[in-house]
Simulated scan of single mutants.
Amino acid sequence: MASFTNRALGYLAGILTALLEAGYLVAGGIVLGPAMLWPRTRPAAVRRFLAGVRWLTGLELRRRSRFFGDVFPADRDERKTLPYLAARLTTGLLSGVVVGLLGFGVVLVVLLTRGVIRGSVGIWELLAQVLLGGVLLFLDVQGIIALAALDGRLARRYFGPSERELLKRRIAELSTSRAGIVRAVDRERQRIERDLHDGVQQRLVALAMLLGRARRHRDPVEAGRLLEQAHRASEEVLVELREVAWRAYPSALDNLGLPEALAGVAERAGIPVRIDLDLPARLPRPVETATYFVVSEAVTNAVKHSGATAIAVVIGHGRGRVHARITDDGGGGADPAGSGLSGLGLRVAALDGELFVSSPPGGPTEITVEIPCE
């Protein structure tokens, strides 16, 4: 969503473009009007006139996109350009009048203040002026708000997608996101199964063999040595089992919160990981979980594949969204379509969030995540 400053600048820019459009329509009518009345020259004159209308319409739509964040289809209906410009011209000129009245009111406030300072304005006259000015200011501000909303509605009515198209698009996004989440969960289950089969299970088999050899051995010294090896192997199995459980879902995330869970990620990384969190309160559980797994996976990938020597994690909250940025000084070349990053993207997309990856050859790699969080 655009900031208040951007919207204010866009509103003022709309007044300037309305003046430009009014000048073009008047000049075009004067210059091309006679040619448009003559049958032989009418087609060429109309084409030239409509070319300017299309350019001005494109300028208006770019203004809406730049300052208000509106998105319009690239293949717009050219037949709608002239009706839109005529309606938009009225809105823009009215906006200019309202803003002009606001400026006139500011001048009157300055004059009234000077009168109060000089003592030429009495108390009753001052109260009457303040009351009248407050009412006019309220009406003026309401007029600005209404005209700004009307300006947006006109652009969306003529060139924006309809509510039905938006609903279809949203249904398609949700269907894609759901299918992607199912694939991501399946991949995660396969990874856990591989960790258990190739790691924990093999170690347990080796532990069982050591215990069997110790039980069958007749030499007490050798049996004691085998039992000591089995004890160390059992400790290693416990460590690896805790690692698998942590990667599946860290209990610290529920018990201690995101800062402690990420501190555990930094401790196990093996390289320096600087974590900077600026969160006002505990995040909702789905947002907190998604943020944790994004950071954990990004740090793990950087340690394994990038050759990084340092990683920086910055997480903050603003404008109703959680922002997370993970940067490493490795060699770059991370593939956003790879199974790890694509799975994270699907996890984030399920919460209507976005994941961006910048990893040019030679580095650095920067992964940015934004998740809505009211």
Rank of each mutant, 00 (worst) to 15 (best):
V295L: 02
Q229L: 03
G320M: 06
T17I: 10
P43R: 07
G362Y: 03
R203I: 02
G331L: 12
R54M: 09
A233S: 15
R63M: 03
L102I: 08
F72M: 05
Q229A: 10
A27K: 01
R203W: 06
L277D: 01
S358V: 11
L344P: 04
D335K: 06
H317M: 12
L256P: 03
L12Y: 09
E60A: 10
H231W: 11
G345H: 05
A269G: 01
G180A: 14
G212M: 07
G345C: 08
A206P: 06
T368H: 00
F4T: 11
V237A: 15
L174F: 07
G33W: 05
V98L: 12
A233M: 15
V299A: 04
A74I: 07
V109P: 01
L20G: 07
P272F: 00
V46M: 13
Y158A: 10
G160T: 07
A334V: 15
R88F: 14
P220K: 12
R274Y: 01
N301A: 14
G96L: 05
T5A: 11
W124M: 14
V244W: 06
A206T: 11
L137M: 11
A18R: 02
R156H: 13
G23I: 03
L136D: 06
A281I: 02
A308P: 09
L50Y: 00
A44I: 12
V357S: 09
G92A: 08
L258I: 02
S65C: 07
S162P: 07
A337M: 09
T81I: 02
L131N: 04
L25D: 08
L346H: 12
Q201P: 03
G119D: 01
S359F: 05
R218T: 14
I271L: 07
D254L: 15
L258D: 01
L238I: 12
T309G: 14
Y292F: 15
L355Y: 00
L136G: 09
L56K: 03
Q229F: 04
A223P: 11
S234C: 07
L19Q: 09
G100M: 09
F49P: 03
L196F: 04
H217F: 08
Q190W: 12
G133L: 12
D276V: 02
S162E: 02
R164G: 13
A214E: 11
E236P: 03
S358I: 08
V287E: 00
L126V: 07
G29Y: 05
A290N: 03
